[in-house]
Every structure is written in C-alpha cells, then in structure tokens.
C-alpha cells in the first residue's frame, strides 16, 4: 500500500473511531453499569451499535426494527425502515466503511500480523448471501411468527446471533453488575463463543461478520447500485492494471462493478489507482 492510500485509510479509521466514541459517549454508564435513558434513545444510530451498550446514546437500527415488528401489534416499522432506506439510497454501504463501530473492531483486529491472511476461498461468494437470509429469518420472520404467549416476538437476531450486543452490552454490563452475573447461562456462553470465534476470524479474514452475517450491511448493500453517492470509473483514464481489484479487501473488481453490493466505500481502490480513474460521483451527474 502506498503512502497516499495509507494516509487515506488512517483518516477513515480516525472517522470510524471518532464516531464510535461520540455515539457511545455516556461515560457514566461504564462507571455505574447502567445504560443511557435519555430522549436521544428514540433515534437510531447508522451502524450496528447495541442500545444496551452502557455508553450508547442512540438505538441500534436492527434492534429497533425487531422491537417494532415483534411488538404485540406487529406494526410495520416505518421509522426504522425509512431510516435505512434513506441512508442506503443516499450512500449505499458508506455507513459500513465509515460509521460502524463493530466494523472498526474487526478492521483493527485484521491489522494484527498473521502468516497467512485469507482473501477469498471456495464457497465465499455463496456464503456472502447468508446475510440476506439472516435478515429475512432472524430480523423479520422470527419476530413476526415465533412469538410468546402474549404475542410478542423476541429480537431473535439480538438474542441468538448479534456479537455487537455481546461485546458492547453483554460483557461490560455483566462485568459491572453483580445481579446480571448471577443470571448468565447457556445463551451467554453461546454468544460469547460466537463473539470470540468472530474476533479470531477477523485476524484472518477482513470483516467476516460484515461479509457473511450482518443484516444491517445486507440492507444497505441492496442500495449500492442505485445510491445517490456512488463510484465511477473513467474508462478513458483506466489502464486496466487491476491494482484496484487486487487491493480491494472486500474482493470487488471496481473496473467491472464499481458499485457492487459488497463495496463498503472504503476508498482503497480510489487512492491506489495510478491514474485516478476511480472517483466519487453522484447519480445525477452525467
């Protein structure tokens, strides 16, 4: 990676870190083992950020989606769906690359040197479809149909899978709260095992959770091709060297599909291009 690309990536990681700090800045929560209960919690944060994190100032969009759809009335979650459509249609997966705290943690872990990093493997492409299945089954269908006696559907994704909830909420709250420590059982063990597996896998594979499991990334990815903010390859400048495809940590070939569903808008392709053929543009520009 050249100097320009490294600098650009440091700026991006800085933005991610700053956003993670700002959106989890209720420091009293980390001291007292409690969560923020103010009015900002009505609003969703753009990335996967557990609302039971002691510092979280806003709500997790995936958790909020399940809370509304899994409520007794099983209402369509207009606000959360609108929020996701708005952000997705405006920027595609920009949120994944710039504003997701759990993405940041995986990226930092991937920086740990290891003798062999895994880029792609057999079945990689098929496995990437799993995040859509997880969204459909765990975020929509189970909260709608797998309900308790009073008709409420638990947030199944949060309950069974979400590693962000375990890391940001489960671990600190259990460490800080004696009462909660006495209540942990098999579910807590399962979620911690899943979290540890994903964190270890992050050293080998770039953002494994984002690639294969994240329902929020799945939603945003649907908009990548039609988003207002998008990438454009200037054919007259492109020399076909393939440096962009080789450098892409999400294994996208920007020459063929500059706005592929897997692109998290990290910008490595843009800064590594020797002829500056890849640029940000917007959909209304000819």
């Amino acid at each position: 990676m050249d100097k320009k690309t490294k600098k650009q990536q440091h700026v991006r990681l800085g933005i991610q870190a700053l956003w993670a700090l700002v959106s989890n800045s209720y420091l009293l929560g980390f001291v007292q083992g409690k969560i923020y209960q103010g009015p900002l919690k009505r609003l969703c944060l753009p990335g996967l950020n557990c609302y039971s994190c002691p510092g979280a100032l806003g709500s997790c969009p995936i958790g909020a989606f399940q809370a509304v759809i899994g409520g007794r009335e099983h209402r369509f979650p207009f606000f959360v769906a609108g929020f996701l459509i708005f952000l997705g249609a405006l920027t595609g997966r920009f949120v994944c690359g710039f504003l997701c705290p759990f993405g940041l943690i995986q990226e930092l872990l991937h920086k740990i040197p290891f003798f062999k990093k895994i880029g792609t493997f057999r079945g990689d492409k098929l496995l990437r479809k799993l995040k859509y299945v997880i969204f459909a089954v765990f975020v929509v269908l189970l909260p709608l149909f797998a309900v308790d006696l009073i008709g409420q559907g638990p947030p199944w994704f949060c309950k069974l899978l979400c590693p962000a909830g375990t890391l940001e909420g489960g671990v600190p709250l259990v460490l800080l709260g004696e009462g909660l420590r006495g209540a942990i059982g098999w579910l807590y063990a399962w979620k911690n095992a899943l979290l540890i597996a994903l964190l270890l896998l992050s050293i080998l594979i770039y953002r494994p959770f984002c690639k294969y499991l994240c329902p929020l990334g799945a939603v945003y990815s649907l908009f990548n091709g039609i988003a207002v903010l998008r990438h454009r390859v200037d054919e007259s400048k492109c020399v076909g060297c393939g440096a962009c495809a080789k450098a892409c940590p999400m294994q996208v070939d920007p020459r063929r599909r500059p706005n592929d569903a897997e692109c998290i808008r990290c910008g490595i392709c843009r800064s590594i291009c020797p002829t500056d053929a890849i640029e940000w543009t917007h959909c209304l520009k000819k």
């Binding site: 009015p39 009505r42 969703c44 997790c60 809370a67 509304v68 209402r75 949060c158 579910l187």
Partner: peptide, 23 residues
C-alpha cells in the same frame, strides 16, 4: 406520526436482556 419513536424508546431505555445474552 404513528408514535413509533416511543416504542423504540421504551425498548432502548431498559437493558435488553436478549441483546446481552441473558434473556
């Protein structure tokens, strides 16, 4: 308009036991 924000708030201000792996 449909007061959905209150549903979100009601969920978000209590520790979500499912989210943290206890519920």
């Amino acid at each position: 308009w449909a007061d959905e924000l209150e549903v979100i708030l009601a969920k978000a201000v209590r520790i979500c036991l499912e989210c943290i792996g206890i519920g």
